[in-house]
Amino acid sequence: MASETQGAEAATGLPQLDITTFSNQIFWLLVSLVVIYFILSRVALPRIAAVLAERQGTITNDLAAAEDLKAKAVEAEEAYNKALADARAEAQKIIAETKAEIKADLDRANEEADAEIAERTAEGEKKLAEIRESAMESVREVAKDTAAEIVSAMGGKADGRSVTAAINARMKG
């Protein structure tokens, strides 16, 4: 029915089957395809390929750098651990040394004190013995005198030697 009204100009109603436009479309299609092909193969595709390759390279480099940094970090941690252990050992040593020193000081001081105490004790004992001696002497003197006085008072005549002997015997008892 379309063909009836349209007449002989276009035997078909479907624009896709209108043969008269084919050469036009095919010509411009080929022109377009050739232009696109040259745009792509000369400019676009090499450029994108280069960008992608560059990005791949950058990523690889960055990964290597990251690997490097990681190794460095591990190294640093090891160094830190070593330093820590060293410091701890040093501290232990210092503590031990100081302890020994203090102990030595203490011992020495103890000894000194002991010696002084012993000396003082000896001195004190000597003094005490002296005092006792002198006291004994005094007592003996007084006893002799008193005994002589008593003997004389009782009318006797005091024999010095016998009195002393008697007192000595008495004192020893």
Partner: peptide, 19 residues
């Protein structure tokens, strides 16, 4: 024709995106 016009636009769009 309009086919030419829209093919040219196609080329332009491809050029805009890829170049």
């Amino acid at each position: 024709t309009n086919a030419t016009f829209w093919m040219a636009l196609t080329i332009l769009a491809i050029f805009a995106l890829l170049v």
